[in-house]
């Protein structure tokens, strides 16, 4: 793979005198095409298991359902569930379906995309608080211009075709706006 395949970009120059390095004297002829760049991959391969609670969540996603789990002390529903409440530390004992409609709690306009699934730039990545949940899911926005997105905007997920559903967050192609009034930002405090 060449540097160009990786979206090569020019390197900014440092201000004069900030950093200098002598050009080495080299005892052999390096020719007209010295190496200047290298792709040096570092990779870690895991056999990943999400655990019991997140397995339940992912199996729900395969049916286009968001399955959170409730903290027995505060009553808040956490998603994706990790099996324990992050607030009380107690095991979650009740499964609760939330969403699929949701509210944007935070967003970012992305101008440099990376990853093999990244949409064309600029796009909006955002946190989506499913109705009934205490915390937000990460995703990207579609069917709307990046400068129209706002905190409190009401959205729904757009799923892949039914025959493409797996136990994966990739079942959600993106989220899109729905015709409902915005949720006031004050109501979203503590739910990002």
């Amino acid at each position: 793979m060449t540097a160009d395949d990786r979206g090569d970009r020019s390197i900014s120059t440092l201000p004069e005198g900030l950093w200098t390095q002598p050009t080495p004297s080299v005892p052999v002829d390096l020719g007209d095409d010295p190496v200047r760049r290298q792709v040096v991959p570092a990779s870690m391969r895991y056999d990943y298991t999400p655990g019991l609670a997140s397995t339940r969540f992912l199996r729900g996603l395969a049916e286009k359902r968001f399955l959170g789990e409730r903290c027995p002390e505060t009553g808040e529903v956490y998603i994706p569930p990790r099996g324990v409440s992050p607030v009380s530390g107690l095991p979650t004992t009740e499964q609760v379906e939330v969403g699929p409609k949701a509210t944007i709690t935070s967003f970012c306009v992305v101008h440099i995309g990376f990853g093999f699934n990244a949409p064309p730039t600029p796009f909006v990545s955002a946190l989506f608080l499913p109705d009934g949940a205490a915390v937000s899911l990460y995703g990207t926005m579609g069917e709307v211009s990046h400068d129209q997105v706002r905190i409190g905007m009401r959205v729904e997920p757009v799923w892949v075709d039914d025959d493409q559903l797996t136990e994966s967050m990739e079942n959600i192609r993106y989220w899109r706006p729905i015709d409902e009034p915005d949720v006031p930002a004050e109501q979203l405090k503590g739910h990002m």
């Binding site: 290298q38 792709v39 040096v40 570092a42 870690m44 391969r45 895991y46 056999d47 298991t49």
Partner: peptide, 13 residues
């Protein structure tokens, strides 16, 4: 329990 291969790769250039 679900289980899947996960590769975390940094293609440093």
């Amino acid at each position: 329990l679900l289980r899947a291969p996960l590769v975390i790769e940094y293609p440093f250039n």
